[in-house]
């Protein structure tokens, strides 16, 4: 008898299997939504696709009655600005700190314990402190994201730096390279694809911090909108926003993966062989 671990679905069947849970989820939602709407046509908990469609239309394609803005796009723009800034700062800081602590034992001895300790602080617990130090504006939201993911990226890069075979460093030195040349010509190129991977992994946490910060004090943003309409249980707005955030996160992730293979094809090939 063929063992379970050797059963491989045919390509077409593979796709179907992958879609099945989504179809089941949507079906369960439709049934539940219909049952509730039958009892109360104004039910807000499980809106039908018609109501959701109308809400999307209202949020994305019609100017808001009071401000004249297209809310979804305004929210998306401000959230993405905050997220990108935060992640960019975290990536640069993480790369510099990670590489230096990994490559220079002197710096490593001085900063590694601090890095370990800071990476263990739950950033959300720091939020009230951040608000008091950086105010309620954009700064504190960006800082929260940066603080939240920098330690993770820095520790990851530090790890990766230490993994680079010492033979390479010895060889570079016998060819006459000085410290900064080794850092920039030997280590940095090898760390860049790892940095992109680390950023991909930390994006989930980035979104979490972004939405948490927007929920507490904001005038726009995806997280702001969700927590605002929660006040009157507008699931017809919340569900599309959640789906939109998921899609944005997915696109970010795929874009970074694509950049990684385009810029550093040798890394992807190395990984495959």
């Amino acid at each position: 008898m063929k063992r379970m671990i050797n059963f491989k679905p045919a390509p077409a069947f593979n796709v179907m299997l992958g879609l099945l849970p989504f179809v089941l989820l949507v079906m369960a939602y439709v049934v539940g939504s219909d049952a509730r709407l039958e009892l109360n046509p104004n039910d807000k908990l499980l809106p039908g696709f018609e109501q959701i469609g109308a809400a999307i239309d209202r949020m994305a394609f019609e100017p808001n009655k009071r401000s004249g803005d297209y809310l979804l796009w305004v929210d998306t723009a401000s959230s993405l600005t905050r997220l990108s800034l935060g992640v960019l700062i975290a990536a640069v800081l993480g790369l510099v700190v990670g590489m230096l602590t990994g490559a220079l034992p002197l710096v490593g001895a001085g900063l590694s314990p601090l890095l370990t300790v800071t990476s263990l602080i739950p950033p959300l617990a720091l939020l009230p402190v951040l608000f008091i130090v950086f105010g309620l504006g954009e700064l504190s939201k960006v800082v929260l994201i940066a603080i939240g993911i920098t330690p993770f990226i820095a520790r990851d890069i530090q790890r990766r730096t230490l993994e680079i075979p010492s033979e390479q460093l010895v060889k570079a030195q016998t060819l006459g390279a000085n410290t900064s040349q080794i850092l920039i010509r030997v280590l940095l190129p090898q760390l860049m694809p790892r940095l992109i991977d680390a950023v991909r992994l930390s994006l989930g946490a980035g979104w979490l911090f972004l939405i948490a910060a927007e929920a507490i004090a904001a005038t726009d943003g995806l997280g702001y909108r969700i927590f605002l309409v929660r006040r009157y249980m507008s699931m017809d707005v919340i569900l599309p926003y959640v789906a939109w955030i998921t899609l944005l996160a997915f696109m970010f992730d795929q874009a970074l993966a694509w950049i990684n293979t385009r810029l550093y094809p040798w890394n992807a090939q190395g990984g495959r062989s």
Partner: peptide, 9 residues
Amino acid sequence: TVVNTSDAD
């Protein structure tokens, strides 16, 4: 300008 702020904070 109204700034939505959580009552907890």
